[in-house]
Amino acid sequence: MTKMKESEKNTAPEKVLTRKDITKLGWRSSLLQASFNYERMQSGGFLLAQMDCLKKIYKDDKEGLSEAMTDNLEFINTHPNLVGFLMGLLVSLEEAKENRSTIKGLKVALFAPLAGIGDAIFWFTILPIVAGISASMAMSGSIVGPLLFFAVYLSIFILRVAWTHAGYNLGLKAVDTLREYSGIISKVATILGVTVIGGLIASYVHISLLPEIVINASKTVSIQKDFLDKIFPNILPFTYTLLMYFFLKKKKMSPVVLIAATFGLAILLSFLGIL
Protein backbone atom coordinates (compact mmCIF):
# COMPACT_ATOMS: atom_id res chain seq x y z
CA MET A 1 0.00 0.00 0.00
CA THR A 2 2.71 2.47 1.02
CA LYS A 3 4.83 1.36 -1.90
CA MET A 4 2.08 2.34 -4.31
CA LYS A 5 1.95 5.80 -2.76
CA GLU A 6 5.70 6.20 -3.23
CA SER A 7 5.41 5.43 -6.91
CA GLU A 8 2.49 7.80 -7.33
CA LYS A 9 4.73 10.50 -5.93
CA ASN A 10 7.01 10.36 -8.94
CA THR A 11 4.35 11.66 -11.29
CA ALA A 12 4.44 15.25 -9.96
CA PRO A 13 0.92 15.94 -8.66
CA GLU A 14 -0.76 19.05 -10.06
CA LYS A 15 -1.61 22.06 -7.91
CA VAL A 16 -5.26 22.04 -6.90
CA LEU A 17 -5.29 24.86 -4.31
CA THR A 18 -5.83 28.46 -5.42
CA ARG A 19 -4.78 31.69 -3.68
CA LYS A 20 -8.36 31.98 -2.53
CA ASP A 21 -8.22 28.61 -0.83
CA ILE A 22 -5.13 29.66 1.10
CA THR A 23 -6.71 32.97 2.14
CA LYS A 24 -9.71 31.01 3.37
CA LEU A 25 -7.39 28.66 5.24
CA GLY A 26 -5.88 31.72 6.95
CA TRP A 27 -9.26 32.89 8.23
CA ARG A 28 -10.27 29.37 9.21
CA SER A 29 -7.05 28.96 11.21
CA SER A 30 -8.91 30.96 13.87
CA LEU A 31 -10.93 27.81 14.60
CA LEU A 32 -7.80 26.27 16.14
CA GLN A 33 -9.15 26.13 19.69
CA ALA A 34 -12.79 25.32 18.87
CA SER A 35 -12.66 21.99 20.72
CA PHE A 36 -9.72 22.63 23.06
CA ASN A 37 -9.23 19.91 25.65
CA TYR A 38 -6.47 18.50 27.84
CA GLU A 39 -6.12 15.23 25.94
CA ARG A 40 -5.23 16.56 22.47
CA MET A 41 -5.25 20.33 23.08
CA GLN A 42 -6.01 22.06 19.77
CA SER A 43 -6.14 19.06 17.42
CA GLY A 44 -9.89 19.14 16.68
CA GLY A 45 -9.84 22.73 15.48
CA PHE A 46 -6.49 22.24 13.77
CA LEU A 47 -8.03 19.56 11.57
CA LEU A 48 -11.30 21.41 11.03
CA ALA A 49 -9.50 24.52 9.73
CA GLN A 50 -7.66 22.44 7.10
CA MET A 51 -10.69 20.29 6.09
CA ASP A 52 -11.67 22.25 2.96
CA CYS A 53 -8.12 22.14 1.59
CA LEU A 54 -7.71 18.44 2.40
CA LYS A 55 -11.03 17.59 0.72
CA LYS A 56 -9.95 19.45 -2.38
CA ILE A 57 -6.58 17.69 -2.46
CA TYR A 58 -7.89 14.16 -1.89
CA LYS A 59 -11.20 14.47 -3.81
CA ASP A 60 -12.45 10.89 -4.17
CA ASP A 61 -9.52 9.27 -2.37
CA LYS A 62 -11.42 8.50 0.79
CA GLU A 63 -8.61 6.46 2.25
CA GLY A 64 -6.00 9.19 1.71
CA LEU A 65 -8.31 11.76 3.26
CA SER A 66 -8.93 9.53 6.24
CA GLU A 67 -5.20 9.06 6.81
CA ALA A 68 -4.56 12.80 6.61
CA MET A 69 -7.42 13.48 9.02
CA THR A 70 -6.17 10.91 11.52
CA ASP A 71 -2.65 12.40 11.46
CA ASN A 72 -3.93 15.92 12.02
CA LEU A 73 -6.01 14.79 14.99
CA GLU A 74 -2.89 14.00 16.98
CA PHE A 75 -1.86 16.21 19.89
CA ILE A 76 -0.93 19.77 18.96
CA ASN A 77 -0.47 22.91 21.03
CA THR A 78 0.74 25.99 19.20
CA HIS A 79 -0.03 29.69 18.86
CA PRO A 80 -3.39 30.82 17.38
CA ASN A 81 -1.83 33.89 15.77
CA LEU A 82 0.90 31.99 13.95
CA VAL A 83 -0.70 28.60 13.33
CA GLY A 84 -1.71 29.67 9.81
CA PHE A 85 1.96 29.51 8.86
CA LEU A 86 2.12 25.87 9.89
CA MET A 87 -1.19 25.05 8.19
CA GLY A 88 -0.06 26.71 4.94
CA LEU A 89 3.17 24.74 5.02
CA LEU A 90 1.42 21.43 5.74
CA VAL A 91 -1.24 21.76 3.02
CA SER A 92 1.49 22.60 0.50
CA LEU A 93 3.11 19.28 1.41
CA GLU A 94 -0.21 17.45 1.27
CA GLU A 95 -0.81 18.95 -2.14
CA ALA A 96 2.62 17.76 -3.30
CA LYS A 97 1.67 14.30 -1.94
CA GLU A 98 4.76 14.13 0.27
CA ASN A 99 4.78 10.94 2.29
CA ARG A 100 2.81 11.00 5.50
CA SER A 101 5.72 10.57 7.89
CA THR A 102 7.46 13.68 6.48
CA ILE A 103 4.33 15.78 6.95
CA LYS A 104 3.72 14.44 10.42
CA GLY A 105 7.37 14.86 11.43
CA LEU A 106 7.44 18.48 10.32
CA LYS A 107 4.26 19.27 12.21
CA VAL A 108 5.65 17.79 15.41
CA ALA A 109 8.98 19.56 14.91
CA LEU A 110 7.47 23.00 14.30
CA PHE A 111 4.44 23.49 16.51
CA ALA A 112 6.35 23.98 19.77
CA PRO A 113 8.91 26.54 18.45
CA LEU A 114 6.02 28.46 16.85
CA ALA A 115 4.19 28.48 20.17
CA GLY A 116 7.30 29.82 21.91
CA ILE A 117 7.82 32.61 19.41
CA GLY A 118 4.11 33.48 19.43
CA ASP A 119 3.91 33.65 23.22
CA ALA A 120 7.04 35.83 23.43
CA ILE A 121 5.83 38.23 20.73
CA PHE A 122 2.07 38.40 21.22
CA TRP A 123 1.47 37.78 24.92
CA PHE A 124 4.67 39.06 26.50
CA THR A 125 5.63 41.96 24.26
CA ILE A 126 2.76 43.38 22.21
CA LEU A 127 0.06 42.94 24.86
CA PRO A 128 1.90 44.74 27.72
CA ILE A 129 2.87 47.64 25.44
CA VAL A 130 -0.49 48.09 23.72
CA ALA A 131 -2.46 47.47 26.91
CA GLY A 132 -0.26 49.89 28.87
CA ILE A 133 -0.71 52.72 26.39
CA SER A 134 -4.41 52.19 25.66
CA ALA A 135 -5.27 51.66 29.35
CA SER A 136 -3.67 54.96 30.35
CA MET A 137 -5.69 56.69 27.59
CA ALA A 138 -8.90 54.99 28.75
CA MET A 139 -8.29 56.02 32.37
CA SER A 140 -8.03 59.65 31.34
CA GLY A 141 -11.52 59.19 29.86
CA SER A 142 -10.62 58.83 26.19
CA ILE A 143 -12.50 56.36 23.98
CA VAL A 144 -9.38 56.35 21.77
CA GLY A 145 -7.83 53.89 24.29
CA PRO A 146 -10.08 50.90 23.54
CA LEU A 147 -10.33 51.86 19.85
CA LEU A 148 -6.54 51.86 19.52
CA PHE A 149 -6.37 48.49 21.27
CA PHE A 150 -8.98 47.06 18.91
CA ALA A 151 -7.26 48.48 15.82
CA VAL A 152 -3.92 46.91 16.76
CA TYR A 153 -5.43 43.49 17.39
CA LEU A 154 -7.58 43.64 14.26
CA SER A 155 -4.40 44.19 12.24
CA ILE A 156 -2.72 41.27 13.98
CA PHE A 157 -5.79 39.15 13.22
CA ILE A 158 -5.72 40.08 9.53
CA LEU A 159 -2.00 39.21 9.40
CA ARG A 160 -2.99 35.58 10.01
CA VAL A 161 -3.84 35.38 6.32
CA ALA A 162 -0.37 36.67 5.41
CA TRP A 163 1.38 34.06 7.60
CA THR A 164 -0.70 31.35 5.94
CA HIS A 165 0.30 32.45 2.44
CA ALA A 166 3.93 32.68 3.59
CA GLY A 167 3.84 29.12 4.93
CA TYR A 168 2.22 27.81 1.74
CA ASN A 169 4.55 29.66 -0.65
CA LEU A 170 7.79 29.01 1.20
CA GLY A 171 7.04 25.34 1.68
CA LEU A 172 10.05 23.35 2.79
CA LYS A 173 12.39 26.30 2.32
CA ALA A 174 10.77 27.92 5.35
CA VAL A 175 11.60 25.06 7.67
CA ASP A 176 15.36 25.58 7.67
CA THR A 177 15.10 29.34 8.13
CA LEU A 178 12.64 28.91 10.95
CA ARG A 179 14.77 26.31 12.70
CA GLU A 180 17.84 28.50 12.30
CA TYR A 181 16.29 31.71 13.55
CA SER A 182 13.66 30.59 16.06
CA GLY A 183 16.22 30.72 18.88
CA ILE A 184 17.37 34.25 18.08
CA ILE A 185 13.86 35.58 17.44
CA SER A 186 12.47 34.36 20.73
CA LYS A 187 15.53 35.62 22.61
CA VAL A 188 15.22 39.09 21.07
CA ALA A 189 11.48 39.17 21.73
CA THR A 190 12.13 38.17 25.33
CA ILE A 191 14.61 41.04 25.78
CA LEU A 192 12.03 43.54 24.56
CA GLY A 193 9.35 41.94 26.73
CA VAL A 194 11.45 41.87 29.90
CA THR A 195 12.45 45.54 29.45
CA VAL A 196 8.79 46.52 29.12
CA ILE A 197 7.83 44.46 32.18
CA GLY A 198 10.47 46.39 34.16
CA GLY A 199 8.68 49.57 33.09
CA LEU A 200 5.26 48.10 33.83
CA ILE A 201 6.26 47.25 37.40
CA ALA A 202 7.32 50.87 38.00
CA SER A 203 4.17 52.31 36.42
CA TYR A 204 1.34 49.98 37.36
CA VAL A 205 2.01 48.33 40.71
CA HIS A 206 0.98 50.73 43.47
CA ILE A 207 2.13 50.30 47.04
CA SER A 208 2.32 53.36 49.23
CA LEU A 209 2.88 53.40 52.98
CA LEU A 210 0.64 55.69 55.06
CA PRO A 211 2.41 55.98 58.45
CA GLU A 212 4.13 59.22 59.39
CA ILE A 213 6.65 59.74 62.12
CA VAL A 214 5.80 62.66 64.35
CA ILE A 215 8.95 64.57 65.24
CA ASN A 216 7.28 67.50 66.96
CA ALA A 217 3.98 69.36 66.80
CA SER A 218 4.82 71.15 63.55
CA LYS A 219 6.92 68.50 61.78
CA THR A 220 6.04 65.00 60.64
CA VAL A 221 8.05 62.74 58.35
CA SER A 222 6.15 60.52 55.89
CA ILE A 223 7.86 57.16 55.55
CA GLN A 224 6.83 56.91 51.90
CA LYS A 225 7.32 60.47 50.59
CA ASP A 226 10.25 61.67 52.70
CA PHE A 227 12.11 58.40 53.10
CA LEU A 228 11.49 55.60 50.55
CA ASP A 229 10.83 57.89 47.56
CA LYS A 230 14.06 59.76 48.28
CA ILE A 231 16.12 56.57 48.36
CA PHE A 232 14.56 54.78 45.40
CA PRO A 233 11.08 55.39 43.99
CA ASN A 234 8.93 52.31 43.34
CA ILE A 235 11.20 50.10 45.41
CA LEU A 236 8.21 48.46 47.16
CA PRO A 237 6.41 47.49 43.91
CA PHE A 238 9.67 46.09 42.55
CA THR A 239 10.35 44.06 45.69
CA TYR A 240 6.79 42.72 45.88
CA THR A 241 6.82 41.67 42.20
CA LEU A 242 10.12 39.82 42.69
CA LEU A 243 8.61 38.17 45.74
CA MET A 244 5.67 36.96 43.61
CA TYR A 245 8.18 35.70 41.00
CA PHE A 246 10.04 33.84 43.73
CA PHE A 247 6.88 32.13 45.03
CA LEU A 248 5.69 31.23 41.52
CA LYS A 249 9.01 29.99 40.19
CA LYS A 250 10.87 28.52 43.13
CA LYS A 251 8.00 27.49 45.39
CA LYS A 252 5.72 26.51 42.47
CA MET A 253 2.78 28.24 44.14
CA SER A 254 -0.45 28.74 42.21
CA PRO A 255 -1.24 32.31 41.09
CA VAL A 256 -4.73 31.92 42.58
CA VAL A 257 -3.19 31.39 46.04
CA LEU A 258 -0.96 34.44 45.58
CA ILE A 259 -3.87 36.61 44.43
CA ALA A 260 -5.87 35.52 47.48
CA ALA A 261 -2.86 36.15 49.75
CA THR A 262 -2.36 39.60 48.21
CA PHE A 263 -5.97 40.48 48.97
CA GLY A 264 -5.73 39.11 52.51
CA LEU A 265 -2.54 41.06 53.15
CA ALA A 266 -3.94 44.28 51.65
CA ILE A 267 -7.08 44.07 53.76
CA LEU A 268 -5.10 43.32 56.92
CA LEU A 269 -2.69 46.23 56.32
CA SER A 270 -5.60 48.50 55.48
CA PHE A 271 -7.22 47.53 58.79
CA LEU A 272 -3.97 48.32 60.62
CA GLY A 273 -3.69 51.65 58.80
CA ILE A 274 -0.34 50.85 57.19
CA LEU A 275 -1.51 50.92 53.53
Binding site: F124, P128, G193, V194, I197, L200, I201, Y204, V205, H206, I207, P237, Y240, T241, L242, L243, M244, Y245, F247, L248, K249, P255, L258, I259, T262, A266
Partner: peptide, 12 residues
Amino acid sequence: GILPAVGFGMLL
Protein backbone atom coordinates in the same frame (compact mmCIF):
# COMPACT_ATOMS: atom_id res chain seq x y z
CA GLY B 1 -3.33 48.33 42.88
CA ILE B 2 -0.96 45.55 43.99
CA LEU B 3 -2.63 42.82 41.91
CA PRO B 4 -0.60 43.52 38.71
CA ALA B 5 2.47 42.35 40.67
CA VAL B 6 1.13 38.77 40.56
CA GLY B 7 0.58 39.01 36.81
CA PHE B 8 4.03 40.47 36.18
CA GLY B 9 5.47 37.76 38.43
CA MET B 10 3.79 35.19 36.16
CA LEU B 11 5.26 36.82 33.05
CA LEU B 12 8.69 36.83 34.65
